Simulated scan of single mutants.
Amino acid sequence: MKTAVIGATGKAGQLIAQELKKRGHHVTAIIRNKSNLTANVDDVIEKNVNDLTATDVMPFQAVINAIGFPPEHSDQHVTVGRHLIAIFSEVKTARLLVVGGAGSLYVDKNHSRMLKDMPSFPDIFKPIAEAQSKNLADLRDVKTFDWTFISPAADFRVDGGRTGTYTKASEELTTNKEGNSYISYADFAIAVADEVEQASVLKGRFTVVGEELQ
Rank of each mutant, 00 (worst) to 15 (best):
64 I>C: 06
62 A>C: 13
30 I>P: 01
94 A>D: 00
39 A>T: 08
35 S>Q: 13
128 I>K: 01
120 S>Y: 13
120 S>M: 14
142 V>I: 10
136 L>D: 00
103 G>K: 00
71 P>L: 13
48 N>P: 03
120 S>L: 10
75 D>K: 10
77 H>G: 00
46 E>C: 11
93 T>F: 07
65 N>W: 14
34 K>I: 07
121 F>P: 05
99 V>H: 02
107 V>I: 15
118 M>W: 02
31 I>P: 00
138 D>T: 06
89 S>N: 14
73 H>E: 14
128 I>D: 09
66 A>N: 08
140 R>K: 14
93 T>K: 14
70 P>Y: 12
135 N>K: 00
137 A>W: 01
50 N>R: 14
129 A>W: 02
76 Q>S: 13
101 G>W: 01
116 K>W: 03
78 V>Q: 08
142 V>Q: 05
65 N>P: 08
139 L>D: 02
45 I>A: 06
104 S>Q: 11
31 I>T: 03
49 V>K: 05
94 A>R: 01
47 K>I: 14
64 I>E: 00
77 H>K: 00
126 K>Q: 11
41 V>H: 08
31 I>L: 11
39 A>M: 11
104 S>K: 03
60 F>I: 12
95 R>M: 05
61 Q>I: 05
74 S>G: 09
104 S>P: 06
66 A>Q: 07
135 N>E: 12
124 I>K: 14
72 E>G: 04
115 L>Q: 06
43 D>Q: 13
136 L>P: 00
130 E>M: 08
34 K>G: 10
56 D>S: 12
36 N>W: 07
42 D>C: 09
108 D>E: 10
135 N>S: 09
104 S>F: 01
39 A>N: 10
117 D>G: 05
30 I>S: 05
44 V>S: 10
67 I>S: 08
85 I>D: 00
65 N>D: 15
